[in-house]
Design a protein around this nucleic acid. Sequence first.
DNA 1: CCGATTAGTTAGCCTAGCTAACAGTTAGCA
DNA 2: TGCTAACTGTTAGCTAGGCTAACTAATCGG
Lengths: 149, 149
Amino acid sequence: MPSRTQDDDTTIERFHHLAIVMLRGMRRVDEAAGFTGPRASALAVLVFGGAQSLGDLARAEGVKPPTMSRLVKAMQAEGLVESVTAEHDQRQVRIAASAQGRQLLMKGRRRRIEALAKLLAGATPREKAALATVVELLERALSGKRAPG
Amino acid sequence: MPSRTQDDDTTIERFHHLAIVMLRGMRRVDEAAGFTGPRASALAVLVFGGAQSLGDLARAEGVKPPTMSRLVKAMQAEGLVESVTAEHDQRQVRIAASAQGRQLLMKGRRRRIEALAKLLAGATPREKAALATVVELLERALSGKRAPG
DNA sequence: CCGATTAGTTAGCCTAGCTAACAGTTAGCA
DNA sequence: TGCTAACTGTTAGCTAGGCTAACTAATCGG
């Protein structure tokens, strides 16, 4: 990293802390909407990314298979996802969002967006643009390289 | 919210998802450095904000007193913080970072910054500026209003 | 056809949230 | 003065989500 300044470091550290605080708040919103963050997140992958195997889903979310296995099991018990063994490989479990799951995701999404939008209500157009830029930066950075560590 | 566009909503939702994924990665870094995210975060408050009561610390971190009580207890067992009852009010517990705690925090901080900086290595100057802007925006938004929900 | 690899699950552990119920301390007021 | 109310933390007990280790079942390659 050739040109990293002290300011960059400070920003990074503050960003990390802010992410923690923000997500703690979001967790409450998610729970009020009917489910938890990781489930919402996994469900979103299924809704927007289509049905996929448990392992792929785990990788997409950056967790280990046992963790995803439990998340899926819980969501399945609530009727949010459906899972069938893949026909071409009987080991794999193909997981898909159910209609109910889709519906709940959208509802939670609305609530989460409302909460975050309320939080960011005072943002100027310049700040909004900055947020969009950061989102693109992070997406680029996080795609592929699952864990930064 | 007068002028919120569809794009804003999409950005917000993506930002939420990215925050989750990023923090999962950071958690691994923190653990490798010797402690967990919430502990690092609370310790940072103590190091940079000075000694304070458990309740204040809990409020600063946006968690309930029992949660902070346990975090403090764990850090105390590891020698990272010291706690004494306040002289002016025997109910209160005054918590301060120990020298060892300060040291570990700085070490973890360095590692976390390294990891995030590596993740953001491809950022352009414009993107770095955007990140700084977003950090300021979030700090402004999150200060005071503990939980957005 | 049998061993090695791969996909998921189960068991068991940890951290971190929460609420409810409790103990101790302070403050206020009759 | 003394009693009650309010406040500060802690303990107990629950849930969720993360992990590793160890297992089962299926596929693949010699």
